[in-house]
Amino acid sequence: MKQSTAIKIATGVAAAAIGGLFLYSRATRPPVINPKVPQPARPVDLARYTGLWYELARHENRFQKNMDAVTAEYTLDPGGKVSIVNSGLCAGETERDVAEGHAIVADTQTGAKLKVSFFGPLYTGDYWVLDHGENYDWSIVGEPSGRYLWLLSRDPHPAADHLQMLFQRIESLGYDRWALRITQQSPIE
């Protein structure tokens, strides 16, 4: 076989593999639960946003499938980057899955829009703090496609009336609260 034919075959195989990964990525995305994602409701002070958050609910996604006891910890690095450590426990497992990443501020006027990366610089995702409590005790996080949503709290077990208020706020932002998966914060048995 001539070298040029081998190069053409290798290039075709590589293109097919990349195309297959692209199609798989597109096919496994969650459905849109909000076709009109609002702009963040208020600015974010990243120094106050840092620390440990407990996930109360999320729109289920492939990278957190069947995961409970989910936490997210944010640390402000020198130079303004944010270090992220997400972790959770899958049913039947005893060791937490951990994902480490970084974020940079994409909207310097409000601090409410970040670009996050857990897979190096080649892939970044949007992270929008759509709303948060005055005291940074809760946060609703989404992104512009309307496919992902997370409800975070400093308290892993907020009072029922407080949780109801948060779900009403999610609905007022245009999301279907019934499309969310409640995250169990008690250890999985």
Rank of each mutant, 00 (worst) to 15 (best):
P40Y: 09
T71V: 10
E189Y: 06
G20Q: 05
K113S: 11
G51V: 03
P40V: 09
D77W: 00
G20P: 05
P121G: 13
L56N: 02
E93Y: 12
T28E: 07
Q168I: 00
K2G: 14
K65I: 05
E143D: 10
A6H: 04
P156T: 01
P40Q: 11
G111K: 10
G92L: 05
A16F: 13
P158S: 02
W128F: 09
G12H: 03
G101S: 05
D97R: 15
G88C: 07
A99Y: 08
R96F: 15
V70W: 01
R169W: 00
K36S: 14
K115R: 15
G111R: 09
N34R: 09
E55F: 00
G120N: 06
E171L: 04
S172V: 05
F118P: 08
A57R: 08
Q168A: 09
Q3D: 10
H162G: 00
W138T: 03
P43L: 02
R26I: 02
G142R: 11
T108P: 08
R169Y: 01
T11Q: 10
D126F: 05
R147Y: 09
K36T: 13
A112L: 06
T50C: 15
L46V: 14
E143T: 08
L163S: 02
R48M: 12
E60C: 02
E73K: 14
N135Y: 12
D161G: 01
M1Q: 06
G125W: 12
R154L: 05
I170L: 04
L151Q: 02
L21D: 09
W150F: 14
P40T: 09
R181H: 10
L180D: 08
L56V: 04
A112R: 04
Y54E: 00
C90L: 15
V13H: 04
G88R: 07
T50Q: 15
V98L: 07
A10S: 14
A72V: 09
Q109Y: 01
H162S: 12
R42P: 02
Q164M: 01
A15E: 03
F22K: 07
G101A: 05
Q39F: 12
A72D: 04
L122R: 08
P43Y: 00
L180S: 07
I104H: 03
V70L: 06
I18N: 01
A15V: 12
F119T: 11
P31L: 04
T94Q: 14
Q185K: 01
L89G: 07
P30A: 12
V129E: 02
R147P: 03
K8D: 06
P156Y: 03
V70A: 04
V13S: 03
K115T: 11
N61E: 14
L130N: 11
A57V: 11
C90A: 15
L151A: 02
K115H: 13
L46D: 06
E93H: 14
G146C: 03
T75Y: 01
R62K: 12
V13K: 03
N66Q: 11
T75E: 13
D77V: 04
L166Y: 01
M67H: 08
G142V: 09
A17N: 01
R42K: 15
D97A: 14
G19H: 06
L23K: 08
I182S: 04
T28C: 06
N34S: 14
H132Y: 00
T5R: 12
S145L: 10
Y24P: 01
W138F: 15
F118S: 08
P78E: 14
R62M: 12
P38F: 10
E171I: 04
